[in-house]
């Protein structure tokens, strides 16, 4: 595995029980993702992109094959170790934002830092910085029900990035947003990818965001059918 490899997957197979049968969601996937990459797992519904994302994030386990994330073999790690990996080095962005409804924007963004036991002063500074990145300074005390979809997703982005993760996983981050908000979100993520050198992995079938991706891995029926890197000068 190269030094800048953040994810290394070899012969990954994932099967789900469906009644008495098994459905194979991922079939012999092998790939490496590198530091600072802005990668999209692209494909139609049921192609296995979310399953792959969940396995990378340690939210699900592989049936067969080897998965190493940030040099940690996920096959041999228990729940607590995977939780620690997510807490320290990963950020998640969900399609439906998954913000805690009773928390304000500030409190939602602060949560990963509390889980990482950061002291209060540093926490306030980091949260304010993250909220500023996503342009929500004037909404820091608003609760999710007072925000638009775009603002919710920007809050989720701030929450995913506030603890300086090495890897951010985004599952259909623009699926619930209109075109303008989708572009705004992708611009923010692209900018942060450049500034923070954080690796991003998207699971998406949203054509609007394809243009922002630096690498597109196309999945169909649990197989990688295409993997191409795109050279971009200016986005």
């Amino acid at each position: 595995m190269e030094n800048n490899t953040v994810i290394s997957i070899q012969n990954l197979i994932k099967r789900f029980p469906v009644g008495s049968e098994f459905f194979t969601a991922l079939k012999d996937i092998t790939l490496d993702l590198h530091k600072g990459e802005f990668t999209g797992l692209v494909g139609p519904s049921g192609s296995g992109k979310t399953t792959l994302l969940n396995i990378i994030g340690g939210l699900d386990s592989p049936t067969e094959g080897k998965v190493r994330v940030l040099n940690q073999p996920l096959n041999n790690t228990n729940h607590n170790e995977r939780a620690r990996l997510r807490r320290k080095y990963m950020g998640f962005i969900f399609q439906s934002y998954n913000l805690l409804p009773v928390y304000t924007v500030f409190e939602n963004v602060e949560l990963p830092l509390i889980l990482n036991k950061m002291n209060k002063e540093d926490r306030i500074q980091k949260v304010n910085q993250a909220i500023e990145w996503v342009g929500l300074t004037n909404k820091r005390n608003s609760k999710p029900n007072m925000l638009s979809g775009g603002e919710c997703q920007r809050t989720a982005i701030a929450r995913a990035l506030v603890h300086d993760p090495v890897l951010v996983m985004a599952d259909e981050p623009t699926a619930n947003l209109d075109a303008e908000n989708s572009h705004n979100i992708m611009k923010i993520l692209t900018k942060l990818n450049k500034e923070l050198d954080t690796s991003f992995v998207f699971a998406t079938h949203d054509e609007k965001i394809m243009g922002y991706l630096k690498r597109i891995i196309r999945l169909e029926d649990g197989n990688i059918v295409d993997d191409k890197k795109i050279k971009k000068e200016n986005i």
């Binding site: 994030g57 939210l59 729940h79 607590n80 939780a83 620690r84 990996l85 997510r86 807490r87 320290k88 990963m90 998640f92 969900f94 998954n98 805690l100 949560l111 990963p112 889980l115 990482n116 929450r159």
Partner: peptide
Amino acid sequence: GTLMALGMTRS
């Protein structure tokens, strides 16, 4: 689920 995704252990 969100808390788990953010790294909170089951216990």
